[in-house]
Design a protein around this nucleic acid. Structure first.
Lengths: 127, 127
DNA sequence: CAGGATCCTAATCGATACTG
DNA sequence: CAGTATCGATTAGGATCCTG
């Protein structure tokens, strides 16, 4: 027989807002869209330049998705040819600090890459 | 002719730590793994209980991945049958605040769901 | 310019069965 | 207990072409 299962010491993300919110950041592009919109409203074509490797199809899909979730707003400008401007909603703005703290860790991660990190590579312990 | 492209007002996530770090949170399960490990070391079987819908195959894959990136540590306990305990490294701990701020937004998101959010559903603007 | 339509590839995941 | 192996389903995403 093995060890008894312990109860988790942390509560589950209550009814999973973690998952709910991660769905706002899913895939490769959502975080970038929100990141670039954090600098102010931005048009479709501008976002394509900001995020060079995204295809129009996928960018459209992500924008629609984020719009339907209330994170970004879409405004059709009355120009010719027509432009469409996207911006963060109030709710979307709340994601920015989270994103920034993620970037901070990502930066540290890159710094650490290359030299040995403190993972004691597969240590063995006595129980 | 249309509007000229504006320069982005935010810098790109410098050489993409955003993407680098998001890769630590990718897929459906990485964030949950880190979340549950934030309460202290946790064994494989315990994590499977914490995160009910993850398959052994995928959980293994994620754990290996996070281990190789230096975010979690793996320790084989000398019991019979053998147990394996996972824990956050120092670097992994840094992800926790980011995760918490994501959860905060997720919670707000759930609160707002159902009643009208402030997206002015596809307004039109004059330019 | 902003995107819809179509087609296709690669990655990801769950289920199931099996092993040291 | 802590995995590994195999399979088939789902999905993100790219490329290309086309339109209001």
């Amino acid at each position: 027989m093995g060890l008894p299962l312990r109860r988790s010491k942390v509560e589950p993300p209550p009814s999973c807002p973690l998952t709910a919110c991660m769905s706002l950041l899913h895939g490769a592009w959502c975080p970038n869209v929100i990141w670039y919109l954090s600098g102010g409203p931005r048009r479709f074509g501008e976002l394509r330049v900001d995020i060079p490797r995204v295809s129009a199809r996928v960018l459209t899909a992500r924008l629609r998705e984020l719009e339907s979730k209330g994170v970004i707003a879409r405004a059709v400008l009355d120009t010719s040819p027509p432009s469409v401007e996207y911006s963060l909603t109030e709710l979307g703005e709340e994601l920015v600090p989270a994103l920034r703290s993620i970037v901070r860790v990502g930066t540290r991660l890159k710094e650490q890459r290359g030299h040995v990190h403190n993972t004691p590579a597969r240590r063995k312990m006595a129980a």
